[in-house]
Nucleic acid binder design. Structure first.
Lengths: 213, 213
DNA sequence: ACCTGAACACCGTTCAAGT
DNA sequence: ACCTGAACACCGTTCAAGT
């Protein structure tokens, strides 16, 4: 669901087609194998020359950010839908639940949030808008009195990033561990005393298994 | 303080000296600028040829893991000292406090824990021993009844990694934010209801500042 | 205008030759 | 045994020539 920027020049039909092909090929390869797939392989997979790729995206980073910004906007859109849910607290934590599922499917999005990619202007801009959605979900959740009101969206995302890293390691070993760790985030943000957690503790064996798989 | 592995062959004096030089140069450069400084620059800074570096460390990853393992062992040693502290709960959270300080000083350690470096056997082994120390600190803290007893050391590290990422972004903008986020981790691990946090919410402006600096 | 393979500067790694 | 600069295969990026 990529929205074309309003000030973007009209491209010739074949150029537009090539641009899309590169974007699609890159998105597929990045999702599968992360951000360090070579630009040569992307161009080949898109059926264009390497130089054509660089005509559309000045550098590899711009290609990455174009995709990541799309993904962030998708996530933000989902969050806006959840703003109309009945239970605001459930809506907030279901949002985080779905978000960690996205990250698991899309290594590109995961790496872009976890690394120092916020130095990229386009990504930081999309991140800011996304943060606004988290803020609204959080504000509604606070009104119930169940969520502590001295935290902001950035605090939520800080905790969330830990879960994302954990998820990328343990999701294939035992998916319940993700739920457990989201429960710990919920505990951190909750007004009331400790409640039981889903799942089991991750063990050393789990680390070993996730490293081999 | 690196302990020599018992099964390691004796090196000729000059070889040993070169090995140390490479290790020191790499540690300094990695700490300053992260893990992607070139192996050529490391060799030059150590005053040896590139091939000499590869004689001592079969690949760049081995050089990195040698340094990271040392750092993890240092951190574990510090944790063992804190096992004798009077207040076990304070000891646990002071340990995390100091640990995040180490990460901030040493970009190599930070990257090695946050990325998929646990696939490296040597690092994973050191990580396992380190986890044992966290487990002991945690066990003592649980005995007081203040820390929930359904969490394990891996759960603690999951939350901690989020703080490390936050710290690497915000430490230079407002160091208090680290304390705040450690307070949130403490809240997640605590039996009792929400307590006030240190510091202030990180803002969008903070993200921007940290990206530019 | 847009396309492309060839060329460039760089990286981690290996090798052949030196002591 | 250990050292080394030169060579290799690769990467992201640029360029000169084609349509």
């Amino acid at each position: 669901m990529s929205a074309m920027a309003p000030d973007e020049k009209r491209l010739r039909a074949d150029a537009e087609r090539n641009r899309r092909r590169v974007l699609d090929a890159a998105a597929a390869l990045f999702s599968e194998r992360g951000l360090d797939v070579g630009v040569g392989e992307i161009a080949e997979s898109a059926g264009v020359g390497r130089a054509t790729l660089f005509r559309n995206f000045a550098c590899k980073e711009d290609l990455i950010s174009a995709i990541v910004v799309d993904r962030m906007n998708d996530a933000g859109a989902r969050g806006r839908v959840l703003l109309d849910a009945e239970d605001p607290v459930e809506a907030l934590f279901q949002f985080l639940d779905e978000l960690v599922g996205r990250q698991q499917l899309d290594r590109a999005l995961f790496e872009a949030v976890s690394d120092a990619w916020l130095a990229n202007d386009a990504i930081r801009e999309a991140h800011a808008e996304f943060l606004g959605v988290v803020d609204q979900l959080l504000a509604r959740a606070k009104e119930t009195g169940e969520v502590r009101d001295d935290v902001g969206p950035m605090d939520v995302l800080m905790l969330f990033k830990g879960v994302c890293e954990s998820a990328s390691a343990f999701a294939h070993v035992d998916p319940e561990i993700i739920g457990r760790h989201l429960d710990l985030v919920r505990a951190a943000l909750s007004m009331s005393a400790a409640k039981p957690l889903r799942g089991r503790e991750p063990s050393l064996r789990d680390v070993e298994l996730s490293a081999r798989g």
